[in-house]
């Protein structure tokens, strides 16, 4: 978040009048500017070559996979990041033995079943870190793709199961409803799902790692 936006957020919604300001005393942040949009599946119809289309579809879906809303909790190390600037999580939290944090400071110590906007704390019924086998941080889209398809690294899911997970898992869906102050993942969950479905239908090809 830019300094300027942060400051605006800090002051609440401000309307400048002549020499005066109207200020609602909100401590929250302004509505996130809305992430980028996702191109609809139909817009890829012009790519004749199936493999090329598959790759293009995955590239588009990759806007979501590489978004801070997703990468922050798919870290390569033990510690998640937070915020649009993907800074190390404060306080220091780690995945612990099951992705739910360390003894004494589990994810659920702060993160409830839903976003709690007055405290600016996001939430979900199973807020946790993706397992290290699903780390996306710092990885190329090709590597993420291969990882996504690899049953040994994706929780033993086939592509259909991945799609179901993406469309139904509340924590995945949270990325499009992250609460004020956090930019949502691009497009919508349905558009993202449609892209991945089309990608699967075209052979689920992966970009070069």
């Amino acid at each position: 978040m830019s300094r300027h936006r942060l400051a605006a957020a800090a002051a609440g919604a401000i309307i400048v009048l002549t020499g005066a300001t109207v200020q609602t005393f909100s401590q929250g942040t302004p509505p996130a500017g809305g992430g980028d949009e996702l191109r609809p599946v139909s817009s890829f119809a012009g790519i004749a070559d199936t493999q090329s289309r598959s790759l293009a579809l995955f590239q588009e879906a990759g806007k979501v996979l590489k978004h801070p809303r997703c990468v922050n909790c798919h870290p390569a190390g033990d510690r998640p990041a937070q915020g649009d600037r993907m800074q190390p999580h404060q306080p220091v939290v780690v995945r612990g033995k099951d992705g739910h944090g360390a003894p004494g400071l589990a994810c659920a110590t702060c993160h409830g079943r839903a976003n709690f906007d007055p405290a600016r704390v996001p939430g979900d019924p199973h807020w946790h870190l993706a397992p290290i086998s699903m780390a996306w941080e710092g990885k190329s889209l090709g590597s993420i793709c291969n990882q996504l398809k690899d049953p040994r690294r994706n929780g033993n899911r086939d592509v259909a199961a991945i799609l179901k997970h993406v469309l139904t898992d509340s924590l995945v869906r949270w990325a499009w409803d992250p609460g004020p102050g956090r930019t949502p993942a691009p497009g919508s969950n349905a558009e993202f799902g449609a892209l991945l479905q089309a990608w699967a239908d075209t052979g689920a090809h992966c970009p070069a790692p």
Binding site: L17, G19, A20, T21, V22, T24, F25, Q27
Partner: peptide, 15 residues
């Protein structure tokens, strides 16, 4: 008290 304060609309003179 906090919820009430959030719902205030105050015009400030910051000249």
């Amino acid at each position: 008290a906090l919820k009430g304060r959030e719902r205030l609309r105050v015009t400030w003179d910051e000249a």
